[in-house]
Simulated scan of single mutants.
Amino acid sequence: MVQAIKWVDEIVPGAPYVTTLETLDKYNCDFCVHGNDITLTVDGKDTYEEVKAAGRYRECKRTQGVSTTDLVGRMLLMTKAHHSNIDEDLDYRKHTDNFGKGPKGHSPWTGVSQFLQTSQKIIQFASGKEPQPGDTIIYVAGAFDLFHIGHVDFLEKVHQLAERPYIIAGLHFDQEVNRYKGKNYPIMNIHERTLSVLACRYVSEVVIGAPYAVTADLLDHFRVELVCHGMTEVVPDKDGSDPYMEPKRRGIFQLVNSGSNLTTDLIVQRIIKNRLEFEARNQKKEAKELAVLEAMKKLEEEKQPGSPQS
């Protein structure tokens, strides 16, 4: 999965949890980068202490509203509150404390709010490249929910179908995915799925809220030469018709076997099976983060003018 991200050049499997100068030198790295959430060792030490002291550490602001913990929670709870197309009467400000970045009683890193996408964020993820003469424009569509290695394997196989592929991925709106998948799907809302798919090196463009049926208008608008679908079941459209009827009629439809049998359903089953382990792990992690947060708040208060320590 990490190798398939367009900004990654090389991966190191089995890297140590604590990043040392020796690790950076071994892989010819100038510095290491981490988000602004905390990572601690078992005894409570900063895992980046050594590289920070040497000036070989950089930090990126963490994307607000996105976390593995939150996604796990969505899988365990039968709720659709995370869907972007469903109105929720939530005033986030009522649920945040003065320190400011998370719900009361929750860590701003582990306990997170709804993720909202911006046009600037899309621009950062998008390649911005138009199809060039000689490119083969290929269209794929689906939920791409909990973007996983099965999706990556499929997109890689599609990418190999042409010498110069330009892959456009159509993402269905949350309500559409919920119609054909049911339960509380999609696990990731349309905003999150858009950025996940755009981050994949095999994808050139994303259609946000693509129609379920691959229509003549869509094919003509994007000048699509090939339409691909994986080996998963194709659910009929609302009127019972085949959503791939038009590309099949044109003779440009192709089934692609990714060789992977991983599905979002299987991932959800894994999470549910290990529910107690996940809950215990997350509670422990959040307790550590809250302790650090409390220390940070005290430090901020001490710096305020008029405080006894200032």
Rank of each mutant, 00 (worst) to 15 (best):
R249I: 06
D43P: 14
A141L: 01
L146K: 13
W7S: 14
E289Q: 10
N257M: 04
V268Q: 09
D43H: 10
E176W: 02
Y139S: 10
T41S: 10
A216P: 05
A287R: 13
V292Q: 10
G55W: 09
E279Y: 00
G105F: 04
V224P: 09
G111H: 05
M245G: 07
E50R: 06
L290W: 00
F144T: 04
R58H: 09
T19A: 12
S119C: 09
V227H: 03
K26E: 15
D87R: 04
V158F: 06
P243Q: 06
R56I: 07
Y139M: 08
V207C: 01
G55F: 05
R93I: 08
L276M: 11
P305Y: 00
D135I: 02
L155P: 08
T263G: 02
N36A: 02
F147M: 04
V203L: 04
S204D: 15
P186N: 06
E10C: 07
Y185G: 09
K273L: 13
A169I: 06
T19W: 05
L293H: 08
T194L: 03
P236S: 02
K273H: 14
V224M: 05
Q254K: 15
E192V: 12
Q117N: 12
R62Y: 05
D242R: 07
I187D: 12
A4C: 08
G230I: 04
A54I: 12
E130M: 13
D145A: 03
T118G: 00
T20E: 07
S307T: 14
N178A: 12
V72H: 08
C228L: 05
G134M: 00
D37F: 01
T118D: 04
T136P: 00
V203P: 09
D153L: 07
V51Q: 09
D97E: 10
G142W: 05
D70E: 15
A4V: 01
Y244C: 06
E59H: 01
I252W: 11
R179A: 09
R281P: 06
H34S: 05
H221M: 12
V224R: 09
P131V: 01
R74L: 03
N282A: 08
A210R: 12
K285A: 11
C228I: 10
V12I: 15
H172V: 01
D239T: 00
